[in-house]
């Protein structure tokens, strides 16, 4: 059995390594699929942001591209009315819990949400869902960066960087349901936690929740 398979994404023939996940195959071939939580190295994908829906022939419902292994002869469409509907709702749901003042955001013009909006023609404003308007305390205790949870989309990129790249284990997800947040042990400010301020988490953040303080970055 060959290590490579041939498949079709959006009418294009694509070669890929057997067992690879569809999302990465598509991205490697410059075919865009929205995503926030996917981490290539993660063995069992988190599959939590629910934005990478695609249609696969033979499946009666859209499926997440990050969890599907490519197969010989697989036929994939990255867009359909059902996919677009789910992506739109998922995206609007995330925005309803996201501080949407882009102009004040350090990640403005360098933000994954903005990329998704642009690529999929979605609006960066509250449309069907009222903003949840939750209060979060800004953690600017580290010397060079800060953490504004009002922008956090709970993608898990920072906790992965902290755990597996920096190998520190200072931050993690706590609470349940709508109260789920990324935080430190006992909700301590980062500077008072075991955080080493290596800043790998800041580099990993796709939306400007973890960001470099201006004067340091200038």
């Amino acid at each position: 059995m060959s290590d490579y398979i041939t498949m079709i994404i959006d009418d294009r023939e694509v070669k890929a390594r057997r067992g690879e996940k569809l999302l990465w195959v598509a991205l490697d071939n410059d075919i865009y699929i929205p995503h926030l939580c996917a981490i290539k190295e993660e063995k069992r994908p988190n599959a939590s942001c629910r934005l990478c829906f695609v249609e696969i022939e033979g499946h009666n419902q859209p499926v997440t591209a990050c969890t599907r292994e490519v197969e010989e002869g697989m036929v994939v469409a990255t867009r359909s009315s059902r996919v677009d509907r789910l992506v739109k709702t998922g995206f609007e749901l995330l925005l309803s819990d996201h501080n949407l003042k882009c102009r004040e955001c350090p990640a403005n013009k360098n933000c994954s949400l903005q990329v998704i909006a642009k690529k999929r023609g979605l609006k960066l404003k509250h449309h069907r869902f009222n903003p949840l308007k939750r209060e979060f305390k800004l953690d600017d205790s580290p010397a060079e960066f800060a953490f504004d949870r009002s922008r956090c989309v709970l993608c898990g990129q920072c906790t992965w960087a902290d755990r597996f790249e920096a190998e520190v284990g200072a931050i993690g997800f706590t609470n349940r349901g709508i109260d789920r947040v990324v935080t430190t042990f006992n909700d301590l400010p980062l500077a008072d936690s075991i955080c080493t301020e290596c800043k790998l988490c800041v580099d990993a953040c796709p939306v400007g929740a973890l960001y470099y303080k201006k004067d340091q970055n200038a």
């Binding site: 755990r163 520190v168 284990g169 200072a170 931050i171 993690g172 997800f173 706590t174 935080t183 430190t184 042990f185 006992n186 936690s193 075991i194």
Partner: peptide, 8 residues
């Protein structure tokens, strides 16, 4: 294990 995991 990291203390934050217990807190989780």
């Amino acid at each position: 294990v990291p203390a934050v995991d217990i807190f989780s």
